[in-house]
Design a protein around this nucleic acid. Sequence first.
RNA 1: GCCCAGAUGGCGGAACUGGUAGACGCGUCAGACUCAAAAUCUGGUAUUCGCAAGGAUGUGCAGGUUCGAUUCCUGUUCUGGGCACCA
Length: 1001
Amino acid sequence: MEYNFRKIEERWQNEWKKNEVYKVNNDSPKPKYYVLDMFPYPSGAGLHVGHPLGYIASDIFARYKRLKGFNVLHPMGYDAFGLPAEQYAIEHGIHPAVSTDQNIKNFRAQLDKIGFCFDWSREVRTSDPHYYKWTQWIFLQLFNSYYNRIEKKADRIENLIKIFTQEGNVNHPIPNSQFQITGSSFTIHDSQFTSADWNSFNEKIQQEILMEYRLAYCGYGEVNWCEALGTVLANDEVINGVSERGGYPVVKKKLRQWYLRITEYADRLLEGLEKIEFSEAMKEMQSNWIGKSFGAEIDFSLTPNLSLRRGDGGEALTLKVYTTRPDTIFGVDFMVIAPEHELISSITTEEQQQAVDDYITYVKSRSDRDRQAEKKITGCFTGAYAINPFDQREIPIWISEYVLAGYGTGAIMAVPCGDERDFKFAKHFNIPITNIIGKHYTGEEANPTKDAVLENSGFLNGMVMRDAIDIVITKLEELGIGKRKVNYKMRDAAFSRQRYWGEPFPIVWDNGIAYPLPENELPLLLPEVKTYSPGPEGEGPLANIPAWTEKKLETNTMPGYAGSSWYFLRYMDPFNEKEFCSRKVSDYWGQVDLYIGGTEHAVGHLLYSRMWTKALHDLGFIGHDEPYKKLVNQGMIQGSSRFVYRLNVNGKYLGEDIVINNVFVSYNIYLNVIRDNNLLQHITVYLIQTGYLSNITLLIKENIAEHFSQLHVDVNMVDGIELDIEAFKKWRNGEYANAEFILEDGSLYHSSSISNYICSTEVEKMSKSKFNTVNPNDLVEKYGADTFRMYEMFLGPVEQSKPWDTKGIEGVHRFLKKLWRLFFDEIKGPIWTSSAPSPLERAGGEATDAELKVLYKTIKKIEEDTERFSFNTGVSAFMIAVNELSDLKCHKKEVLEKLLIILTPYAPHVAEELWHQLGNETTILDAAYPKVEEKYLVESSKNYPVAINGKTRAELNIVLDATQQQVEEIVLANETVQKWLEGKSPKKIIYVKNKMINVVI
RNA sequence: GCCCAGAUGGCGGAACUGGUAGACGCGUCAGACUCAAAAUCUGGUAUUCGCAAGGAUGUGCAGGUUCGAUUCCUGUUCUGGGCACCA
């Protein structure tokens, strides 16, 4: 009986489906364990071998936990809203729901072949109204909440209104300290209003103020606006300042946008990192993104003639900057303000007006990324000066794109001797540099030290910078021109898209006031549209529907991360029509115990879903405030591309131009030719001799490589690096059907050629356009799901990125066949033996200590490796076990049965089959994980490496409980050691028990 | 530009807490079986010098700490991911 994986896998997949073995109950006496994969977007390209990597890892872990006695939730679903489906709809007129549905079907068919233990009965799709009803509902909860800074948690907006009515906002200042009511003569001072003020406001003003507090709020923000396409573009769709499609110019445009007030959660998102098991790198990325810093806001007055001017609020103009280094205030040589800064129009001098206008126009065409990434320095002087409050020095005010409006106050004080970017700016524009740190500043580059003693710094002279920070802030506060300030780099999250394929906002606009729809009107269904093109003025497609706009419904839709911010909760209770998830159920499942996904979500999805969880927790809907207890990041699987080389030579024959462009040259021949240009002649002469070409005069270019085009070839037509020429000829509808091939030995290809065509290789991103994608189903078809699963794991650590190479899969397949042969012989059939044989079994006595040692060593290793997600070494441990048991000719049921159980998470189909072959009636999926019997693993001695001066020279077998003295005697008696000692006595003998011995001479 | 990660034989990788570098697999070479091939099995395989015994070198690069460094520290190069509307 041979290992017929196709039959086995089909049989058990059907059996498991029929018996609903993966259905999970919300109520179990077993401890719970929640394993989750990051929500996949069902792309039209389907799965390639990179996608299932994380799913296989989570599947192994879920199955392992199940064997360990846990009630394991392991669901799967689809993040089904998104830009690609909408783009497809624009181009092909197919409704995104239709194409998405088709994509999901393909996706599912591919997943099913791999044998995952997902509980598909819990599948969710974000685009399903039953699902997005609750996304809209949660949005309304956020809309109807504010962040209570005193209690440090979200609270109902009704409570805030009550507070305003009773005491104004004295204890709850407006988060945006610059806020002023629009279109009203009422001026808010220091972000404050009284209860009398509040009660005197009309509804519109009250709502405008409340909007400043809501966790989901409406404001204005800049988008990538493409006039030619009449639409807003995603960053992805903008390349070098022009649209990806068509290459039209893209500029910044202010549009009404929804936001989530995630900044209020900055501190808790930071603190929460300490409670969760994310990698240090991931935590660092998140905390850098949040970017908490301590410093000061300083108001600089402007030169007298400007200070006389007044701002809109009738107050004297000042320039407010944020700095983390107030200690350097005497080193400020210029100010830099963002090109969007509101002060620009009031302070720019007449002479500079034109230059400033030109500069701002230039900046409008630049993305935030470009603005920070560019190495070239740009900027423009406004003509205005600020006054240093301590020494009255006049400081020129510049505009530069590297200062972003959204961070701090959108203005910085530049200290070129201490900040590299300021330094380069000063050098570039010839601004004189003040040195306040003496010898620490060389004049060659800035020095950001905090440990220098200050010079040229007025009352700070002689002070260490680190200590001066606090003194300056105190002084500023005394003078009333500055204050201590904590700042965050993180900005509020833009939460709307001018698109069709997303959740509609349950919001009605009336007289400029946003009114939430009542809960009983949810879900607000996404309406059908005739075209997916944008509405007027950059609005989304919904603005084109009269029935929609008549109802004054919001025309924006929610972004991709809306549905994915809470999906892990819906899986717990997917059919609940009354709640997004019942509290009882979410209390049972609690946090996701293990979350597996890529690092690309490091700061987007992971921060947003953490914020949603915290808000839902604050409002009492769930009992935990961090969604993911442990996160494992899977690496990317890169593509390994293959290339062929097409000869491209022009010539003349009988006065006619001749082009050779249908001859492919094997890689090493190509390399030889570009090294030695005579070979090109030889090749063409050869082509002539073989009758392929007549005598022609060649026109050879100076750079021989230009005579070749390197073309991607589909990796599925290449075995390792050998091209399947016949398959290649049929490729792309026979585009190369008449091609000729010069093979590795220099011969021309014919039907019985012995030599091969060799391709070159390169590791690139796996993508269709590079023809390096490999479909997992092809491999499952050829080798089986068990082989495929184990091979994906065998490739390397899950966390690491690595190139895909199909070639190696055979080794894993051989392993499974070898495992099979422990149970079955091709001729003899079943060969396992049992100490208490059933009538059908052979007697074979009890397992020997050596056999049991292999078994328990393996159980221990697999358990350790699985627990630490080291699946690649786990697979090798299985290989080693099977190799050793084969060597021992061990076919004992007692040993093999336990081996099958620990193999189940990795290769469930073959394990289940053999388990039943051995006579078991129940499924192996619920077998009990075997316990390690340490008594078979104890060793009494060890082969110690003996090093002389750190270099291993000999090996000695020494009992484990040997003392230092005993070891020294044994070592010194050794011949090799004696030889190296050359009669000298050693300085020291280092003996680390169970590790090594080092003799120092 | 900024933040994060990675770099080990021909290839994927192993070495978990500073202690025998290269487990396991691929590839490759030699052999067995076979008319032959496939499959399977056995053995070799970091580089280099040497008939061998044995020696030297070796974990991106340059330094450092240590009896001992792939592992820790400093600097540096290259590659990958993210940078707020791809998901």
